[in-house]
Design a protein around this nucleic acid. Structure first.
Length: 426
RNA sequence: GGAGGGGUGCCUGAGUGGUUGAAAGGGAUGGUUUCGAAAACCAUUGUGGCUGAAAGGUCACCGUGAGUUCGAAUCUCACCCCCUCCGCCA
């Protein structure tokens, strides 16, 4: 949510921002309703003030006649209050509806663009593997090694699921250990959060407006959303809290299963485990002082790149343009890893600065040491590893001529194998 | 799932339908004292909206939402959350 005062003072900036983000909201209508809402509120409050004064008088007055007279007056006054209250409620509902439709505004240095085609490639890092044989795609390799079973997952659960088996399962734990160990050194607090959220918390994250609502699983019987990323649980964790300035930046790394309906992705990436309904992910999340969120975003990107470099997977960094930012983000970078079988880069990481957009919705503030004043924190999130996609990248980039899969050096200490041999098919 | 108990400020904890935004204690902050500290003493100590240049004015908030009333932390209803016991269970 944006600050209504900011919108009042900078309607054109907001309009421009919405346009850049390809989101249509009627700002003029919002301001008109805001004006009517305040007008009504003022009238109602004046009336209440009158009533409060009268109540005091009633309490003080000892004469019964005098009391009755004032009470009757107040009853008369009350006739208007229902109408005013009703009006106010309507204005407030409409106001809130419009406010929630406004996305976070892009920061100034974000490149303007329509969609993902306008994202800017900042750099390519790492050497793409050169194979002196015809590289296979990861699903073929995974089948040969009995690492991923899509067919049986379809039998048990339907499309877009997978069983991770054998070395793939061990690799997942190795990746988790690797990240936890390294990010903990950088001050990230490990968290395994709930994967279900109450509706108001889920909505507070800002991902549930417009079409994104269809993206989430909802358990109607219990009125709970399944999270799409642990970021959602981690933001909600500090809802309605006041943090100490000395606690900032507060960095978390959340490990959780993530659930996505992939409702808008019919026919897209239907093979394998690139796009599935359920996957595990380690997410970085940080609450910062407003003036530090830009720096924190750079720090997150640096962490992501460090992790990718440690695994020696070639990747490129994209600066996301205004039209592709997503609802709550004000700035965002993606990392795409090299996928040999498709001869192109595919997204594995994403890191965003949501400024005070989430914290205003969820009321997460901090108290300044100096001024003792309360301000909203900024929130920054970023992928550490989305396990499934990293496994894909590992399998393809580390495949060997003899049919085995090598294991990155940095993961070997968490595993009791250095290569993954081929298996006989079941 | 069954039975009971409870949600008040940073915390503990009072609160008879009428100056109760809320006693008291603790904590925190500032000050006095001190070479310094402790102790003691004094003072301060909620958030948000509207309005205003500011001072101020005003409204709201005692889990949430409705209701009764001239007036609700206090009465009524619904919901949410937490705790205890029993049952079930990884």
């Amino acid at each position: 949510m944006l600050d209504i005062k900011f919108i009042r003072n900078n309607p054109n900036l907001v309009k421009e921002g919405c346009q850049k983000k390809q989101v249509e909201v009627d700002i003029d209508q919002l301001l008109e309703i805001d004006r009517k809402k305040r007008e009504t509120l003022q009238a109602l409050e004046d009336m209440r003030a009158q009533k409060n004064k009268a109540s005091l008088e009633i309490a003080k007055t000892k004469e019964e006649k005098e009391k009755k007279k004032i009470i009757l007056q107040m009853r008369e006054l009350d006739r208007n209050s229902d109408r005013l209250t009703n009006n106010l409620k309507n204005f407030e509902t409409e106001f809130k509806k419009l406010m929630l439709q406004i996305p976070n505004l892009p920061l100034e240095d974000v490149p303007t663009g329509k969609d993902e085609r306008d994202n800017v490639v900042l750099r390519e890092v790492g050497e793409k593997p050169k194979f002196d044989f015809k590289p296979k795609d990861y699903m073929e390799i995974a089948k040969n090694h009995d690492l991923i079973d899509i067919e049986r997952a379809a039998k048990t659960s339907g499309s877009r699921f997978g069983f991770l088996k054998r070395e793939a399962a061990f690799l997942e734990f190795a990746l988790i250990n690797f990240v936890f160990e390294n990010l903990n050194k950088k001050g990230f607090i490990p968290v395994i959060p709930p994967v279900m959220l109450k509706p108001e918390m889920a909505k507070g994250t800002g991902y549930f407006e417009t079409t994104a609502l269809d993206e989430a699983y909802y358990l109607a019987k219990d009125s709970l959303f399944l999270i799409g990323t642990s970021e959602q649980s981690l933001v909600a964790m500090h809802a309605n809290e006041v943090l100490k300035e000395s606690d900032l930046p507060r960095r978390y790394m959340g490990f959780s299963t993530c659930f996505r309906r992939e409702a808008g992705a019919y026919g897209k990436d239907t093979k394998g485990i690139l796009r599935v309904h359920q996957f595990d992910k380690i997410e970085m999340f940080s609450l910062t002082k407003p003036e530090e969120s830009k720096k924190e975003l750079q720090f997150f990107l640096e962490m992501e790149e460090t992790l990718m470099q440690a695994l020696k997977i070639p990747y490129r960094v994209l600066q996301i343009c205004t039209g592709d930012l997503g609802f709550p983000a004000a700035a965002k970078y993606d990392i795409e890893a090299w996928l040999p079988s498709e001869n192109r880069y595919r997204e594995t990481h994403s890191t965003s600065n949501c400024t005070d957009y989430q914290s205003r919705r969820l009321d997460i503030r901090y108290k300044s040491h100096k001024t003792n004043k309360l301000s909203l924190v900024h929130t920054v999130n970023g992928t550490a590893f989305a396990i499934g996609r990293i496994l894909i990248m590992l399998i393809e980039n580390y495949q060997q001529k003899d049919g085995t899969i090598a294991v990155p050096d940095v993961l070997q200490k968490y595993l009791n194998f250095k290569t993954i041999p081929q298996k006989l098919k079941e």
